[in-house]
Design a binder for these strands. Structure first.
Lengths: 223, 223
DNA sequence: AAATTTCGTCATAATTTTGTCACAATAATT
DNA sequence: AATTATTGTGACAAAATTATGACGAAATTT
């Protein structure tokens, strides 16, 4: 499946690696640049779906880089800034910054912002058609057929199934599922997952038992 | 469905890519040329519905290229010029330039001019007659029949339906619909889409439920 | 400029989704 | 076999999302 590409532009290596790690854990494909020049080079040669960039950088600051990027692209940009002065923000939005995160920030906050922005700007994975027994999934149509019948899956059910499909034959803990499908900022019962699984299995009909219980851990989608 | 083909002739790559990006977002199929020779070559081999061309270019300037094109075609041409002197404009119209945009211009202005010119010169997506159950669409006449009855669709309704038809069986988010039907520079409520959908469904009669709600996302037109 | 149509927003209704809980069922352990 | 831990499931109410009618502003036509 197609992975979403994110470019991190941050001169402070520790912070860059930290962000990279969390983005990686969220399933993104991550590109790194430690300065603006490098960033623009990568941006020109790679397909980038979203940019996370520090304002303060040697050579070229974040705003200048954004301005360059905006000449050719409407890619979503999130700016990291140490200062939180109002005029700073205004300047940012002028250059077409889509969102703003003030340091220090929690990785959780940053992840939330990134996901929200991706959603807002409609960056999604490509259209695919998949088949598992009598279960057909058409991601472009966001439609699922069971035994040829159109089955309506709720957003949570759909997202959950997608997560399973993307990680077929892997045992996924409830926590992992919660993190990915509900978002890492979700504070709810682990067992919520069980309920969605129950509904999924039911709707999937005969293919329902592709979702195996992994006792003490969570679930596994088998292909 | 047939996409409108636009040829951009501009030697400055950054600007060319920028225009391309915006045209793409508006749903056009875009061809690029960085000079007059290349432009003529593409014009000969591709079907081009409209040309956007810079006057100032190496080798052959915009007027010369236009003259060449006019020998065989009445394709609408928009000229980009840095100078705004009157004689310039006159010379342009002499060679059969249809419209004129002076640099620097906003992408919004250029898009508006392009759309206006397409409308003026009656370039529409080809005349097609489509049938979906009792719903007949004649894009050439911009007319829709429901159950044999002539039904009047408002511009928004019509455009929206066309977007659906062009992307049949695809889940389209409200944002995507807004971007394409209302234009990327529209800042309004997501829910506006719902209202047009409501009106569409009503006018489409029995075929109204070809427009399916995709919960948490938007809508899908099913064929 | 008057009349008509279109369009966006809002309030409210209708519908669907979702999380939790209680209890049943099942598996693991003693 | 009994006990304990874990998972399955139906029910239900709250929350979220979508449908719809109404209304006035804006645009278009007459």
């Amino acid at each position: 499946m197609y992975q979403i590409n994110i470019l991190i532009v941050e001169d402070e290596e520790k912070l860059r690696k930290l962000i990279k790690k969390y983005l990686f854990l969220e399933g993104f494909h991550v590109h790194e640049a430690s300065n603006g020049i490098e960033a623009l080079k990568i941006f020109d040669t790679e397909t980038i779906d979203l940019v996370v960039m520090d304002v303060m950088m040697p050579f070229k600051n974040g705003y200048e880089v954004s301005k360059e990027i905006r000449k050719t692209s409407q890619v979503p940009i999130i700016m990291l800034t140490a200062r939180s002065a109002e005029d700073d923000k205004l300047q940012g939005f002028d250059v077409g910054i889509d969102d703003y995160v003030t340091k220090p920030f929690s990785t959780r906050e940053l992840m939330a912002r990134i996901k929200a922005l991706l959603k807002r700007t409609n960056v999604t994975s490509t259209n695919e058609k998949m088949q598992f027994g009598v279960l057909s999934i058409d991601t472009g149509a966001r439609r699922i057929l069971v035994d040829g019948e159109d089955m309506t899956f709720s957003p949570k059910e759909y997202d959950c199934l997608m997560y399973f499909v993307d990680n077929a034959n892997q045992a996924l803990s409830r926590e992992q599922i919660l993190n990915r499908v509900w978002g890492f900022d979700y504070f709810g019962d682990d067992r919520t997952v069980d309920t969605v699984i129950k509904r999924l299995r039911k709707k999937m009909g005969i293919e329902g038992d592709r979702i195996q219980t992994v006792r003490g851990v969570g679930y596994r989608f088998e292909v």
